[in-house]
Amino acid sequence: MSTKKTTTQPLLDVQNLKTYFYTDDGVLTAVDGVDFQVAPRQVFGLVGESGCGKSVTSLSLMRLVDTPGKIVDGQVLLQGENLLDKTPAEMTKVRGSQISMIFQQPKSSLNPVFTIGDQIVEVFKIHETISEKDARQQAVELLRRVGIPDPERKAQAYPHELSGGQAQRVMIAMALALKPRLLIADEPTTALDATIQAQILDLMQDLRDTTDTAVILITHDLGVIAELADRVAVMYAGKIVEEGDTTALFDKPLHPYTQGLMGSIPVLGDTKERLEVIPGNVPSLINLQPGCRFASRCGARVEHNLEICTQVEPDLIEFDAGHKVRCWLYQEHAGHTPPLKAFADKKDRK
């Protein structure tokens, strides 16, 4: 794994992003103050349980959140420009050419009534002045590149004629058509079976090594993160609870939730169930209780008898260089001394 160092200016700088859903039953705080940076050419992993707000975060970056959702606060700086300030027309120029996205369900992400060739050609036509013939040729070239056999013929196929793995390859081809700065991959392999998953990941790894595109990789699968990501953020209930370089985070997980995730990685076997090993459920994101969002499931809180956890929300603090965590085990507060500062240090020394 190559660890690319963060350069001076990040490619993407997300600050205090908040996206809320105004539902019938109240305001659902799906993304509630998320900060992170992605460096050029970096692979940035985003992990967390189902419903913690990963997809909403990524859709917010593209400004594709559907009603009743709204981005209510924050900044999304792409090379210093705030995407949230752009007009809708300016935003369409960014999408597909500077940031592109692939989704969890490749088959339903392709329009069933157009051939895949047409759908790829469309990307060129939107953003470039290009002849139909050239666009078609490039589309076929892209399909070849992502490993679609017999690309000339397959370009005439409709999405229902593809397998899930092929559909995801097509999605990747479409996303990379214009060599974007940033690719957001929202659980690109979750819907695929294991062997196909491996192939798609190989393809992504290959593309990472051969293009200049940075990747935000969203997944449930810590194994995938360990293999592909340079940096990782762990999300819980709409907030980032821990963030660090992949090696550091895997060597020394700080947050009890991250530790739980790591503890539940099986050596072999099915990847699906592992995240449910931490007892309890993600809290409803409507009308959250005060304090730490993980409190109801946190063993460390009980162990150390921390009352502050259910009263005040901890901040995301930089605990080690480049390694951030949001937990009272590490943060000082009036009348509260973090009990685990020493413990973590000790563990580190071993």
């Binding site: 809320y20 109240g26 305001v27 705080t29 400004r63 709204k70 949230l84 009308n287």
Partner: peptide
């Protein structure tokens, strides 16, 4: 995208939902 502060959900609403 308009930036606005979230209206506060009333407590009764949330509770009778449960």
């Amino acid at each position: 995208m308009a930036v606005q502060s979230p209206p506060v959900a009333s407590v009764e609403q949330v509770q009778d939902y449960r």
